Amino acid sequence: MSEGSPGGAGKMRRKGDLPQKICAACGLPFAWRKKWARDWDEVKYCSDRCRRA
């Protein structure tokens, strides 16, 4: 059963092993989330608040 994690391996990953990006608005790092699985390459902001800023 696939968990939708990056890499498609279908196994659980530790939070520290998830890919990270830097938010374009606040400059803080944020980690991959399952809801971003389809469009991780397009994600630029850590939250809706930063996206609106």
Score class of each variant (00 low, 15 high):
30 F>Y: 13
5 S>P: 07
1 M>Q: 00
28 L>W: 07
4 G>L: 05
12 M>L: 01
5 S>V: 10
48 D>K: 15
11 K>E: 00
14 R>I: 00
43 V>G: 10
9 A>L: 01
51 R>P: 05
40 W>H: 06
12 M>F: 02
28 L>Y: 08
22 I>F: 00
19 P>Y: 03
3 E>Q: 02
41 D>N: 10
32 W>M: 04
8 G>L: 00
12 M>I: 05
4 G>A: 01
28 L>T: 08
45 Y>W: 11
36 W>D: 10
3 E>N: 01
3 E>T: 02
31 A>I: 06
41 D>P: 04
45 Y>P: 04
32 W>I: 10
19 P>R: 03
32 W>S: 11
47 S>N: 13
42 E>M: 01
40 W>G: 09
22 I>L: 10
16 G>Q: 13
4 G>P: 07
23 C>V: 02
1 M>Y: 02
34 K>P: 04
48 D>N: 13
19 P>Q: 04
24 A>V: 08
32 W>C: 08
25 A>Q: 11
20 Q>A: 08
27 G>V: 00
46 C>R: 13
9 A>E: 04
31 A>T: 05
24 A>M: 11
29 P>V: 12
9 A>H: 02
11 K>M: 02
30 F>V: 08
10 G>V: 01
30 F>G: 14
37 A>Q: 14
28 L>R: 10
43 V>R: 13
39 D>W: 14
3 E>D: 11
40 W>R: 06
52 R>H: 07
43 V>E: 11
5 S>R: 12
26 C>M: 09
12 M>D: 02
7 G>E: 05
3 E>F: 00
2 S>M: 12
51 R>W: 03
10 G>F: 00
32 W>D: 09
28 L>V: 06
43 V>K: 14
53 A>L: 15
22 I>K: 05
14 R>S: 04
44 K>C: 03
25 A>S: 14
47 S>V: 08
18 L>R: 04
35 K>M: 15
30 F>S: 12
37 A>N: 14
12 M>S: 02
3 E>Y: 03
38 R>W: 11
35 K>W: 12
23 C>H: 06
17 D>S: 05
35 K>V: 15
15 K>L: 08
47 S>P: 08
19 P>I: 02
25 A>T: 15
23 C>L: 06
26 C>Y: 05
24 A>P: 02
45 Y>S: 09
37 A>S: 15
31 A>N: 08
39 D>F: 13
27 G>S: 06
40 W>K: 05
32 W>A: 06
3 E>K: 06
